[in-house]
Design a protein around this nucleic acid. Structure first.
Lengths: 197, 197
DNA sequence: CGATTTATATAAATCTGACTACAGAAAGGA
DNA sequence: TCCTTTCTGTAGTCAGATTTATATAAATCG
């Protein structure tokens, strides 16, 4: 059965990418419907028919981000022979992501919802959950490092996992503050000394 | 000559402290005039007569913060015999500040204005300037450490100053995400390994 | 005490931003 | 061709938030 009714006048997938870009550049609250509809080139009713609400559009944008732009650092975490190489690759990849942000800079998962008020609370916890998963993956990689013997048995894995999660947050904050690649990459070396005890 | 006209019905200094607390807890944009006037116990016209506008009130609150709550970490930076002791003291003090935040957590200078839009742009740059000063002071302390001989001549001072600025931002982010004292203090040890080459 | 000056409260003006009623347009199905 | 279905544009509603006009209250000065 073919689709009935008037066909949509724009590409929904392309529109979602632009939505992601706008949220990525401005964050959830600062991005207003004007920005979203203008970026897509549609009017509000078309937006609501296609995406339901600003909040639902954000959720879809986050999913897309996790699948595409945001996945680079997690893929990088699975490269490299040693845990240290993997962590370095992850941090460098997160710098790439931060600098690839359109307009503004930084990671959507870190900067997308900064204040937890009644209205934005569910979205705040959505992003917080994704960040927690990230730390979990770092922890798993460090555990493997201990098992592989490239980290000492005494390594405080939980602390270091949380530490590198914090470093990624710091990278995004610095990127948002206008830091360029050299300044961001300068953060990687010092942070890796924690693995060189 | 005595003050003419009806005297103010509230203590302006006390009111400014409450304004600081509200902005500290919620950030500039999330804090609405309702919250400010309710915290002080006055009505909007009294607020505007005393503080001019929400933006001017924020500027005064930032000044007060720098003089009081925020000065702890900078004072700590001047304690300790070695540069490493000083940095550790600074980080621990910034954890104290982050956990002393009313309601929410973190540093007003780091989390007070997160998105730089037309309206909040000047305030964003105000806070960014204060943060830059902080990094400058860290740099000066590290320079003294090299001069004192407790850091090697080859120390990359600019990089490390920026690094510890980033660590303080990370501490505030983690605190905002609900981290308690043990989790925050666990970030200090790994970050200090950068000085133990 | 009367005049002036300043603060307060009520209540509303003003503006912004998310969202939607309505009518018209473009497709498929009978 | 006519009906149903779905999308689109105009225009506007509605709620929330900062700011202010107006009248009243409380102080000092002459």
């Amino acid at each position: 059965m073919a689709t009935r009714g008037r066909p949509r006048g724009f590409d929904r997938d392309l529109a979602l990418q632009k939505i992601m870009d706008v949220f990525w550049a401005k964050g959830y609250e600062a991005a207003q419907l004007n920005d979203l509809t203008a970026a897509i080139g549609i009017t509000p009713p078309s937006f609501y028919a296609a995406f339901g609400s600003k909040e639902q559009a954000f959720r879809e944008a986050v999913s897309l981000y996790v699948e595409t732009a945001g996945s680079g650092s997690m893929r990088a975490l699975n490269t490299g022979e040693t845990a240290q190489q993997a962590i370095r690759a992850m941090l460098l990849a997160s710098i790439d992501v931060a600098l690839n942000a359109p307009q503004s800079n930084g990671c959507l998962l870190i900067l997308g919802v900064m204040n937890c008020q009644a209205e934005t609370e569910p979205l705040y916890y959505l992003l917080k959950g994704v960040r927690k998963e990230t730390v979990e993956r770092v922890r798993a990689r460090l555990e493997r490092g201990v098992a592989d013997g490239d980290l000492p048995q005494t390594t405080d894995i939980a602390t270091l996992a949380s530490y590198y999660g914090a470093i990624m947050q710091a990278i995004s904050m610095q990127a948002r503050d206008g830091a360029r690649r050299p300044e961001l990459e300068a953060l990687v070396g010092p942070s890796l000394t924690a693995l060189q005890q």
